[in-house]
């Protein structure tokens, strides 16, 4: 893997990216799910991770989140190599993931969901007042005003509100990097808009956001940078401002852009070989 994933000059004197993966590889038995992925996620930016079904998006974020580690390759957090082999280590490195199924307990209220597993205590007793105050502050800092009471059960919330609670839980802790897996997949138009605004605010507040999405509209609306996966390999990472929908869609479907991009012939054959040997990177 020789290709530079970001179009920024390598000599850039800016701060190291919040998260960087170099040549990450992952196999499940004979299936090569990831065959060299590179990504750069910068502070204050939304980086979109796109790719067709089976391109390896989910596998990649699970590797970053420590569900299972990369077989080879490097994960750098703030420019230093990080050892992430469990979700706990990912949390310790400041990485929080909001999964597509959100992992909320319907029967608990918003406050208890946000603090589940990390309750604030006064001796043996739960410190409800402190938790509620803090939860309210975090929701307010995310400019969430649609929730009537933070003591209502999550079951009574709309899809967008549930997404908001899940995101608020991720930023409640000392997280630097937030990974969002298809946050708008199940939402209507108005709620999608609200969640996208929230995603933008997270980045503007100084977090590094990695957004997995299928939806080109969403990606072009909020992302600063777009990383395209194709059959387990990184096809390219481009600035949103320098790209067009057509180019990104071409990258997603064929792994290469036809114009003003160097041909990726070597990679193409590589990719074709994988498909013929029957692997379907998930």
């Amino acid at each position: 893997m020789t290709q530079s994933v970001d179009e920024r000059p390598a000599s850039s004197t800016g701060p190291a990216p919040a998260l960087e993966v170099r040549d990450g590889r992952k196999s499940f038995g004979a299936v090569h799910a990831l065959r060299g992925v590179d990504i750069t996620v910068r502070v204050g930016e939304v980086t979109a991770l796109v790719g067709d079904n089976g391109a390896g998006k989910s596998t990649m974020i699970k590797c970053i989140a420590g569900i299972f580690p990369f077989d080879s390759g490097a994960v750098l957090v703030n420019g230093t190599k990080a050892h992430i082999h469990s979700p706990a280590e990912a949390s310790a490195a400041g990485i929080e993931v909001v999964y597509q199924d959100l992992a909320l307990c319907d029967n608990l209220d918003i406050v208890h969901n946000m603090f589940l597993g990390r309750e604030m205590k006064k001796g043996l007793r739960l410190d409800e007042t402190a938790m509620e105050t803090k939860a309210a502050d975090v929701l307010a800092s995310l400019s969430v005003r649609t929730v009537r009471s933070i003591r209502q059960q999550v079951a009574s919330l709309s899809g967008g509100q549930r997404q908001t609670v899940a995101i608020a839980r991720a930023v409640l802790w000392n997280s630097k990097i937030v990974i969002l897996d298809e946050p708008t997949a199940a939402l209507g138009v108005a709620q999608t808009e609200q969640v996208l605004q929230l995603v933008r605010r997270l980045a503007d507040a100084g977090l590094a956001v990695l957004l997995i999405s299928h939806n080109m509209n969403d990606v072009f609306e909020v992302a600063d940078s777009i990383n395209v996966l194709y059959l387990g390999q990184t096809a390219a990472q481009v600035r949103t401002s320098d790209s067009t929908r057509a180019k990104i869609i071409e990258l997603i479907t064929s792994g290469a852009a036809s114009t003003d991009e160097p041909p990726l012939s070597g990679r193409r054959t590589d990719a074709a070989a994988t498909t013929t040997n029957g692997s379907n990177p998930a």
């Binding site: 307010a140 800092s141 400019s143 929730v147």
Partner: peptide
């Protein structure tokens, strides 16, 4: 740990 986000300038409507 503390929240990553800065406290909002306006008083929280919830708190």
């Amino acid at each position: 740990s503390t929240s990553t986000l800065p406290p909002s300038a306006t008083p929280s409507p919830l708190a």
